[in-house]
Design a protein around this nucleic acid. Structure first.
Length: 166
DNA sequence: CTGAAACCTG
DNA sequence: CAGGTTTCAG
């Protein structure tokens, strides 16, 4: 019995899905929320969520990229452009998309994030950020790095749930 | 002219 | 995050 609207659980699930896909299509989303009764509003709300996820993601990338650009020593820059699981940027991302920290952040996401970080850095470094639409080229690169979401996400509830009902 | 995504605000 | 507005491709 599909529920009327989206619950906090659905939000949590959507955030975890972001680890795999930054630009999911509405049709794709429908296959991952079998316990949701889709309609115009629900669909747009889900799309909106991902839009907000991306916004947060890119804001952080730009922030850290500019921070790296300020570093004088090349060694310091390289260190700032590294997005390991022991970095501040990683901590921020994990905190936002995996608040309860009960999901293993896929390596792929860490890689894609670093690509984004470096793209922002090079764009800033070369002064391309003067162009009003300079971010668009970066978005185009990142959207191609989407990967498929694991099949267990197609089940109701979150992959982090210990048990499911029914 | 729409619809999707970015952008801006609260 | 939700709402409203702007931008832009189709």
């Amino acid at each position: 019995m599909p529920r009327e609207g989206l619950s906090p659980c659905h939000l949590k699930k959507a955030k975890l899905m972001f680890f795999y896909t930054r630009y999911p299509s509405s049709s794709t989303l429908k296959t991952y929320f079998p316990d949701v009764k889709f309609n115009r509003c629900v669909t747009s709300q889900l799309i909106k969520w991902f839009s907000n996820f991306r916004e947060f993601f890119y804001i952080q990338m730009e922030r850290f990229a500019r921070q790296a650009a300020r570093e004088v020593l090349s060694v310091a820059r390289e260190r700032a452009l590294r997005l390991g699981r022991d970095t501040e940027l990683y901590r921020i991302l994990n905190m936002h998309y995996n608040k309860s920290n009960d999901y293993q952040v896929p390596e792929r996401f860490v890689e894609v994030s670093e690509v984004a970080l470096r793209e922002f850095f090079s764009a800033i470094q070369s002064g391309r950020d003067a162009d009003p639409c300079w971010k668009k080229s970066i978005y185009k690169i990142i959207c191609k790095l989407d990967s498929s979401v694991p099949d267990n996400f197609r089940l109701p509830g979150c992959p982090t749930d210990t048990y499911r009902m029914g």
